[in-house]
Design a protein around this nucleic acid. Structure first.
Lengths: 266, 266
DNA sequence: TCGTTCTGTCCATAATATGGACAAGAACGC
DNA sequence: GCGTTCTTGTCCATATTATGGACAGAACGA
């Protein structure tokens, strides 16, 4: 595609190291498959989401199957992350810094608020739900589970994270995710609008969550270097989050987000 | 290297699907890095273990770093499995079939025996410690942790697994691991000898574990299709495992291994 | 039966990944 | 300070590899 064409290619800092197209493509495929969780993803969707051609995706996926990195559901024909990925993951020490740092805040906020709380980390151009706390209120929004992965921009957590980074970076990520928005019934313009709104508010908000009739509020959590690494979200049925309570909840989330930032920094 | 040279390449069943050398190599590198756990592995060792050339390994490793799949320890310069691998792993439902099936047996055997118990799964050409139970006896062998990964053949669990598969398959795997044995101070001949001995005994045994003065006994666990998928191991200081007690312990392990096989099969 | 929509395969070709050779940096001895 | 021996990192001509257009087969529904 459009490699820098000047032969000496001004070593422009972010020049992305060539000689590994295939590996990068394989990883792109893997990340799409990860978003499909246990159910997996049909080949056609991988093709659409990555923008690669059919033979290429087919070849990559099947090599990964031979290697045990991907599995194919015999019934549905869909492709999913395989056994060997968690096995490789065992090489890393168990609980992430973020999870440890956020734990007390999640407990506190969950007790105070009573609705479902989510901790969502940024990973590349995706958001990844890494923790969830169920509150005491009898109606809980449980649609999102730990491990859920979506393109940055389609959830209130993703919007919050985008809002907390330089506008230019956010635009780049949104552009990169463009092909994937379709599957979530949104588009670049909508997402950018929400991001701007979140930046003004100081937190992310969605009147319509991924489930009809739900509303979500998210605050971003930054690492010491100032870049947003995660978001803390409350989801509830819309009637539970009127303007007054929205304000209350947002204040709690903002307070706890700052505490988590301290815990990470120390 | 030696690709089948006849142009039409008799589709010989196991013909390993071409067009993905780079991806396969990247995965080979990843698996070596996984064996290095948190500490990581120096580049030279990856080169030695994979048999690839320096520029190739270097390129692969650095692309994987850019992608977040690999991390480099700034102090030691060693390379290790990165953050994004556990993140991808979250896409899979948590506890493996084996872990669930083996749980009661591990509890029972641990109570009965009193020494440290390990559950070790086979993954490709490696063994991977997936569970560990500490017994009541005051001296416990704790050198191996959950997540530890070693070439099939260097531990008693690996020997047991090799012993439980057709001799030809075992030889192939041992040959494939040859380059890596050096780092564990063993070699092909020694390993094959131990495998033969284990086949005769009915279980794997090592008079000298990876730690001086320890002894290990392992039984294999087969899936319904008859292929060994894991091993159950007891490790203890050598004096705790005289001939008499070796017999006792082996019988318990063999009994529980059969129970686990039933549980997987059902 | 035919259309539609999915997955899988072939193979000439362009572009990619390769690795020999070289460079740069770090650690040690003297 | 200067050689020696480690290590890791980079260059670039080249052959090997991965690519994708075009085609084929399978599954489903009308």
């Amino acid at each position: 595609m459009d490699r820098t064409n000047s032969p000496k290619a001004g070593r422009g800092a972010l020049e992305p190291r060539q000689g590994a197209q295939a590996i990068r493509r394989a990883l792109a495929v893997l990340r799409i498959l990860a978003a499909g969780r246990e159910d997996g993803v049909p080949l056609a969707e991988v093709i659409q989401a990555t923008g690669l051609t059919r033979p290429t995706v087919h070849r990559i996926v099947h090599v990964l199957i031979e290697e045990g990195i991907v599995e194919r559901n015999a019934r549905s024909g869909r492709y999913a992350i395989g056994n060997q990925v968690p096995e490789l993951a065992l090489a890393r020490p168990r609980p992430s810094r973020l999870l440890v740092a956020a734990n007390p805040s999640l407990r506190r906020a969950s007790a105070e608020i009573g609705d479902t709380l989510f901790l969502t980390a940024r990973t590349g151009n995706d958001t990844l739900c890494v923790d969830r706390r169920i509150g005491v209120y009898p109606i809980q929004v449980l649609s999102i589970e730990v491990g859920a992965r979506r393109p940055l921009g389609v959830s209130s957590a993703g919007v919050a994270i985008l809002a907390a980074m330089p506008a230019q970076d956010a635009r780049k990520i949104v552009a990169a995710n463009e092909k994937r928005f379709e599957a979530y019934r949104t588009d670049t313009a909508t997402v950018l609008g929400e991001v701007t709104a979140a930046r003004r508010l100081g937190y992310g908000m969605r009147e319509t969550g991924l489930v009809q009739g739900t509303k979500s509020i998210s605050t971003w959590i930054k690492t010491p270097d100032g870049r947003p690494a995660a978001a803390m979200t409350v989801s509830a049925v819309r009637t539970r989050l009127g303007p007054r309570r929205e304000q209350e909840v947002a204040e709690i989330l903002l307070r706890e987000a700052r505490i988590i930032e301290q815990a990470i920094g120390g």
